[in-house]
Design a protein around this nucleic acid. Structure first.
Length: 825
RNA sequence: GCCGAAGUGGCGGAACUGGCAGACGCAGCAGACUCAAAAUCUGCCGGGGUAACACCCGUGUGGGUUCAAUUCCCUCCUUCGGCACCA
């Protein structure tokens, strides 16, 4: 009587065994090659994992298991990004302490991850909200401060009224909070920033050195937004008293400067009150007031009308000498460049729209061979490069040449200098919230703002009765008087602690390093361990962190490199993004839609091995796909068929050996081994699973034809090799069958099978025969047949002569192992 | 508006470097087993056409290169993702 595939017994049994034997502990020191295989740092939400989250945990587990079998020392750790807004918001909603919530949630996540049969080294588990961890997050803050990369500044910042805190630019998507979706507002507050803009060039350039999806690199480059141009000084004359105010504008198109017919200042530009004409004053002030409210309310309207007001003042164009009017308009932003532009309506769409609205002069300064200039039909499509006209001594130069000549010319006269600007702003890291690492700074009335000395870290997050955000722009910590009150580390006098906490993204900017030495009490990490393990060889997670975590983390790494703490400049050598897993209704899985599928329910019905196999099989790794309730049964059927066939194979192994031969078996097992090895390397798990299925179909057909093959030696060997290849994909089923064979050691400790390339070749191949590109039949030829032999054999076929008789054969194309094409007439 | 990715059977998808489009799986249809159902096993399964062959059409659209195009080039359409007045 054959045993049934009882995954309910098998899976917990092996999970307990592996845990008891500490089967997946990472070796501390080793001569083996290393692989650091890392999942994104998860925030342990109270909802737990759904099957969509498994879409990255399963593949990284397959990779880790596979590389262990290949003889690598593998670091595959897991920990919790527990600090931050999401955890705190959940705690507030449940009216529970965030610390309690975190303990409960991480336990549940861990249970679910174990349920999947993952092979994490749990001895290296970390938690960003633990003082032994955030002590070092604070230590890095001090490092940044010491290097002049952390500073305080009062400015208008994005404020989320629901989360009651400020947000960094990267954390505002289409005018909404990245976490809760509320429309954000501007609020004037004193805030801590990290000077990430100092690293803009390196952050952009070093993208060329990493193996990441091109899409993510492009998003980062766009975000950094490097633009090369020039600063030019325009002399603005006050309309009030005629006084001179040299004012810088930034342009990437210096070559068009002879076409600058007016100048525009941002409404907030500090020069405005000093130059505005008396009779324009009320109109200008009204516009400034209006634009302040407008940016908040109308941010999302797509095609905003370009509006502005004339200040009454004029400026001198330093190249043409023209006297041009100075306007203010809200399409010029104070936060970029110098908050002032030269407007070239002839060759810029925005300036053109503005000039058209207010009847300002439009002048052509670039010409193209096939374009006739006509002021009435002029449009923003003519911003491309060409040849200069109406530009005096620069006429006839190409735009590129003119740019250089004009920089040199202006440079000599002291009005122009080459300049590069960036879209990216400094990273705002203060949060007016409780659940984060306290910023380790002290405000002393005598000494000013001073850092907490390293030996006094961590600045512990105090227990607090109410951790609800106040909404006043102050953190809940500000209300804890005996925590806030402290002594100044410099003068010993009374002082007050900084009450803001750090953005949760600070915690995740260095966590990968902590895994190499998670219990180190003397430093954030052991240098030797980091030198061995880093950079991360394979980093896997969703695409949603393209310009947040991944940018911040790269920045911290470069700072550490500059400080001499690490020997590399990029933390993640290879990055992969898994596709989103939609629910069976094609919608995103969410509690509110009631369409969440949990691994718990799937494991209960089909087992973890089936879940793993199905998630790997359902679509290419990077592609979005919808869950199919029926589809998973195919994966389960496959595993039952493997189970049954191996059971029969084991049974047959107890009898006497036969000499039965399965034609092509050696070819198939060698090809399968090669295919699985390649596909795992390339993250093509779906085709790897398909290859297993094809192989099983091949074996099934062979057994049906002749049952005695089960007891042949090649069959026995091939069946075992199938188990070993399948082990990283379905660890429990393979382990059970491996032990049923009588082995006492784990299948996961087996060496990864190799293949013989010469045995992957067939002796005879079937190739298609075409006449004039249409398939008319196929022939069987020796694999080493020459082009002539293939052509001759093809021409002799009845299905070919039918088309060639009465025609002239012009050409025969023969491609070895593929096709013969006979071209007639 | 700009940047990027992608369009293949009823569905998820496969196709090396240009070489027989639809591997593998799901669903469906027919049959075997069964009193019956489930499970399992076997066969069929892009469209037209045929008694069955033959044959014709077919990878979003229209063109091009080639002996040969899902694959390369150009045009357009659609969907998804990112950025959104960055001078």
């Amino acid at each position: 009587m054959m045993k049934e595939y009882n995954f309910h017994n098998i899976e917990p049994k092996w999970q307990d065994t592996w845990e008891a034997e500490n089967a997946y502990r990472t070796e501390e020191t080793s001569d083996k090659p290393k692989l650091f295989c890392l999942d994104y740092f998860p925030y342990p939400s109270g909802d737990g994992l759904h099957v969509g989250h498994c879409r990255n945990y399963i593949p990284t587990d397959v990779i880790s298991r596979c590389y262990r079998m290949k003889g690598y020392n593998v670091l595959h750790p897991m920990g919790w990004d527990a600090f931050g807004l999401p955890a705190e918001n959940e705690a507030i909603r449940l009216k529970r302490n965030p610390r309690e919530i975190t303990v409960r949630n991480t336990a549940n996540f861990k249970r679910q991850l174990k349920l999947l049969g993952t092979s994490y080294d749990w001895e290296r588990e970390i938690n960003s909200s633990d003082p032994t961890y955030y002590r070092w997050t604070q230590w890095f803050f001090l490092l940044l401060y010491k290097r002049g990369l952390a500073y305080e500044k009062e400015s208008d910042q994005w404020w989320c009224p629901t989360c009651k805190t400020v947000l960094a630019n990267e954390q505002v998507k289409e005018g909404q909070c990245w976490r809760c979706g509320s429309t954000v507002e501007k609020k004037l507050l004193k805030q801590w920033f990290f000077r990430i803009t100092d690293y803009a060039d390196r952050l952009a350039d070093d993208l060329d050195t990493v193996d990441w999806p091109e899409r993510i690199k492009i998003m980062q480059r766009n975000w950094i937004g490097k633009s090369v141009g020039a600063d030019v000084m325009f002399d603005v004359r006050s309309a009030r008293d005629g006084s001179s105010h040299p004012t810088t504008i930034f342009t990437t198109r210096l070559d068009t400067i002879m076409g600058a017919t007016f100048m525009v200042l941002a409404p907030e530009h500090p020069l405005v009150p000093r130059i505005v004409a008396e009779e324009k004053r009320s109109e200008v002030e009204a516009y400034i007031a209006l634009s302040k409210t407008k940016t908040e309310i109308d941010r999302l309207s797509t095609e905003k009308e370009k509006t502005g007001v004339f200040t009454g003042a004029y400026a001198i164009n330093p190249y043409s000498g023209d006297r041009i009017p100075v306007w203010i308009a809200d399409y010029v932003l104070m936060g970029y460049g110098s908050g002032a532009i030269m407007a070239v309506p002839g060759h810029d769409g925005r300036d053109f729209a503005f000039a058209s609205n207010y009847g300002l002069e439009i002048r052509q300064v670039i010409s193209w061979p096939d374009v006739i200039y006509d002021a009435t039909t002029w449009s923003d499509t003519y911003a491309e490069h060409g040849t200069l006209v109406n530009s005096g001594r620069f006429d006839g130069l190409s735009t590129e040449k003119a740019f250089e000549a004009m920089v040199a010319d202006g440079n000599a006269r002291g009005v122009t200098k080459a300049q590069t600007n960036y879209h990216m702003r400094d990273w705002l890291i203060s949060r007016q919230r409780y659940w984060g690492a306290p910023i380790p700074m002290v405000h002393c009335p005598a000494c000013g703002t001073v850092p907490v000395p390293e030996d006094q870290l961590p600045v512990l997050l105090p227990d607090v009765e109410s951790y609800e955000p106040s909404g006043t722009g102050e953190s809940p910590l500000a209300g804890i008087e005996d925590w806030v009150t402290t002594t100044c580390p410099v003068c010993g006098g009374p002082a007050r602690r900084e009450t803001d906490t750090m953005d949760g993204f600070a915690c995740s900017s260095w966590y990968e390093l902590r895994y190499t030495s998670p219990h180190n009490d003397n430093a954030p990490f052991d240098r030797a361990a980091v030198d061995y393990w880093l950079p991360v060889d394979l980093y896997v997670g969703g695409a949603e962190h393209a310009v947040m975590h991944l940018l911040y983390s790269r920045f911290w790494t470069k700072v550490m490199y500059d400080e001499g703490l690490v020997g590399f400049t990029e933390p993640f050598a290879r990055l992969m993004n898994q596709g989103m897993l939609l629910s069976y209704d094609g919608q995103k899985m969410s509690k509110s839609r009631h369409n969440v599928i949990t691994p718990d329910e799937v494991v209960e019905q089909y087992g973890a091995d089936t879940l793993r196999l199905y998630e790997l099989f359902m679509a290419p790794f990077e592609q979005e796909v919808a869950w199919s309730k029926e589809g998973i049964s195919g994966a389960h059927r496959f595993l039952k068929r493997v189970w049954d066939l191996i059971q029969r194979t084991i049974e047959a192994s107890h009898g006497s050996q036969t000499n039965a031969v399965v034609s092509g078996l050696e070819l198939q097992i060698n090809r399968l081994t090669r295919k699985i090895t390649d596909d795992v390397e390339k993250f093509k798990f779906n085709t790897a699973v398909a290859a297993f299925m094809e192989y099983l179909n091949f074996l099934s057909d062979a057994v049906r034809a002749d049952e005695t093959v089960l007891a042949s030696s090649l069959w026995q060997m091939s069946a075992k090799q199938l188990l070993v290849l399948l082990a990283p994909f379905v660890p429990h089923l393979t382990e059970e069958l491996w032990h049923e064979y009588g082995y006492r050691t784990s299948v996961h400790a087996e060496p990864w099978p190799t293949w013989d390339e010469s045995k992957c070749l067939e002796e005879e191949v079937e190739i298609a025969v075409q006449v004039n590109g249409k398939v008319r039949g196929s022939i069987l030829v020796p694999a080493n047949a020459t082009d002539e032999e293939m052509g001759t054999l093809a021409l002799a076929q009845e299905f070919v002569t039918r088309y060639t008789d009465g025609h002239v054969v012009k050409r025969i194309v023969a491609i070895r192992g593929k096709i013969v094409n006979i071209v007639v007439q």
